[in-house]
Design a protein around this nucleic acid. Structure first.
Length: 258
DNA sequence: ATGGCCACATCTTGTGGA
């Protein structure tokens, strides 16, 4: 089973890229973040014509997530249960025996911002949710835009980013707490190219200069991670006209759909 | 040159992203 995650930064704008990418990417499940559209504006028919059914937790203007799958989805749960949040950032569904959670983690803006406090609270809630997911399901995939670069090697210029949001010690501690629950970063299961990133600023010719961060991740429970055959970042869509600032990440698991 | 872009709503300027 091939599972992908992609922050598309407006599905209205990026739908052509998504459809074109699905034609060649051969993914079974695509987790989408930053739809920036309400659930009733989701292009359900276009995805269906491409062979994918969707479950959507949308919101006008900001946030919004969806899972598009060419395998049947069941037990759809939006949001983080028992965490009051106006922002639509999470949706989960079971696909082929895998509990897939699509998440758009908060950005945090800056360390002195209320949004940073919200991010830390949200991370705490997500860690609790991950614990309950792992207790209930053998195979769990938590895929999305984490807005955390876990290590300095995930940052093009660690000195320049020191003390900034996305790399701060508290965010990395939250990442450690989350992974300590029993989730593995699929990307680091394999030897990877130096300077592998999933996001590049639109400014400063950042993509061309590979001034990026690796903040989009697919984490898997141990039984699922044990079946992971590859995990790659596909930079091709970032080279298109009017690209998302994020590239998709794809993990290939040898689990048989059940 | 400590900023440069992009998407959205609104209203052609402000907010948010990362």
């Amino acid at each position: 089973m091939r599972i992908a995650t992609w922050n598309v930064n407006s599905l209205n704008v990026r739908l052509p890229h998504v459809l074109a990418w699905l034609e060649t990417a051969d993914v079974d499940v695509l987790c989408l973040q930053e739809l920036k559209l309400a659930t009733d504006k989701y292009p359900m028919a276009a995805l269906r014509a491409a062979g994918y059914e969707s479950v959507v937790n949308g919101q006008k203007t900001y946030n919004g997530v969806a899972i598009a799958s060419r395998l049947p989805m069941t037990d759809v749960v939006p949001d983080i249960p028992d965490f009051a949040d106006e922002q639509k950032r999470v949706i989960a569904a079971t696909v082929g025996g895998v509990r897939v959670v699509c998440a758009y983690f908060p950005n945090g803006q800056s360390l002195d911002s209320d949004k940073y406090r919200y991010k830390l609270d949200w991370l705490d809630a997500m860690t609790g949710y991950a614990g309950s997911l792992l207790a209930a399901h053998e195979c769990v995939a938590l895929a999305g835009d984490y807005n955390i670069a876990p290590e300095d090697r995930d940052v093009h210029d660690p000195a320049a980013w020191d003390g900034q949001v996305l790399v701060s010690p508290k965010e990395r501690a939250a990442w450690a707490a989350l992974t300590a629950r029993g989730l593995t970063d699929c990307f680091r299961l394999f030897e990877q190219p130096e300077k592998s990133y999933s996001w590049w600023d639109y400014r400063m010719l950042a993509f061309r200069r590979n001034m990026g961060l690796r903040i989009d991740h697919i984490l898997a429970s141990a039984p699922l991670a044990a079946t992971c055959r590859s995990c790659v970042i596909d930079r091709a869509p970032r080279k298109l006209d009017k690209p998302s600032d994020h590239a998709p990440v794809v993990a290939d698991f040898s689990v048989q759909a059940q």
